[in-house]
């Protein structure tokens, strides 16, 4: 089911820009956000809501910029990999501290750490470029230096492959003993401990995985935009990631991407006719989905899929 839905989504995202070219950029941004939202959705499986995951989104983006500027690494795939590793490591370190907390406290501590990071990004001008941010140049591909236009196409289709890969891997993880133990943390942590399983360790792995996904999403975003700013780590972006996860639906991994595509499309159209009101539109859309579609947008697809399969 997941396989069919995610490939369907990727096909739509691959074909539409052939007719409407500027959609390619919108979709690449959507995949970036969707990867990060998938990370947030993983944590939601464990009943943990983070309003600070923009931290890892920004870590991924800034890691890419730093690696290019300071270490002279320009190879696209290597940058994707290294930035994700950096985000994962940061996630592991911060996670050791976070796994002690649950519910509101978990949410707020993530918020606090991300706000510290946001402030550092904004204030440490000599390292981070402060509020001006940093430029992310066009990377090389297996040693070749593509033009910006060529690279954008590579990024556009490459990100769709990342999307499929991430959705399938996370799907397997969530069905594995470790992933099911994560949902078990949500429903009965005491029982989980009485099975001899450390709930904290289960959460730590999920947390690191979610940081990795958010970091990867941030890197994709950095490459797509070509310029990064501290606002990537601001708490409203974190809120947006949770919004995307729930809007799309956490019942399946394609949900996060469906939510992200929906959000980016609405934003694009809203900028055209009501630039100052796009948050109102998103806010109302969110409330409508929460009130009337408890399984999110992906629930719609899932339900029709199920009905179709019943004889």
């Amino acid at each position: 089911m997941t396989l069919r839905h995610i490939i369907g989504l990727a096909l739509i995202a691959a074909v539409l820009p052939l007719a409407v070219p500027w959609l390619g950029f919108v979709f690449t941004l959507a995949v970036g956000k969707g990867l990060a939202a998938l990370g947030v959705a993983v944590l939601l499986r464990g009943g943990l809501i983070s309003i600070g995951h923009a931290l890892y989104f920004a870590v991924g983006a800034y890691a890419t910029a730093f690696l290019m500027r300071n270490d002279g690494i320009n190879e696209f795939l290597l940058l994707l990999l290294l930035s994700t590793v950096v985000a994962t490591l940061v996630g592991l370190v911060v996670g050791v501290f976070m796994v002690r907390y649950r519910a509101i406290f978990f949410a707020m501590l993530n918020l606090a750490v991300s706000m510290v990071f946001f402030t550092l990004l904004s204030k440490m001008y000599h390292v981070t470029g402060g509020t001006d941010g940093l430029r992310v140049a066009t990377p090389t591909l297996f040693g070749f230096a593509p033009s910006r236009v060529q690279f954008n196409s590579v990024l556009q289709y490459g990100s769709l492959i990342l999307m499929i890969g991430a959705a399938l891997i996370v799907d397997r993880y969530l069905r594995s003993p470790l992933g099911e133990a994560l949902s078990a943390v949500h429903s009965n942590e005491v029982r989980l401990e009485y099975l001899g399983v450390s709930a904290r360790r289960v959460i730590l792995i999920a947390y690191a995985a979610s940081a990795a996904l958010a970091g990867l999403g941030g890197t994709v975003t950095a490459f797509a935009v070509g310029h990064i700013v501290p606002e990537l780590s601001y708490w409203t972006i974190s809120g947006q990631l949770v919004l995307i996860a729930v809007l799309g639906g956490i019942g399946g991994t394609p949900g996060a991407f469906i939510g992200a595509f929906f959000l980016e499309l609405v934003r694009t159209f809203a900028v055209g006719f009501a630039a100052d009101a796009w948050n109102v539109i998103i806010g109302i859309a969110l409330l409508i989905v929460i009130f009337f579609l408890p399984e999110g947008l992906y629930g719609l697809l899932h339900r029709t899929g199920k009905q179709g399969s019943t004889p």
Partner: peptide, 21 residues
Amino acid sequence: EALQILVTFGLFLILEDAQKL
């Protein structure tokens, strides 16, 4: 909790832009 926080986040988005408008 995730839903409760999100409902108020939706309200936040609406109020923020309402102020700008």
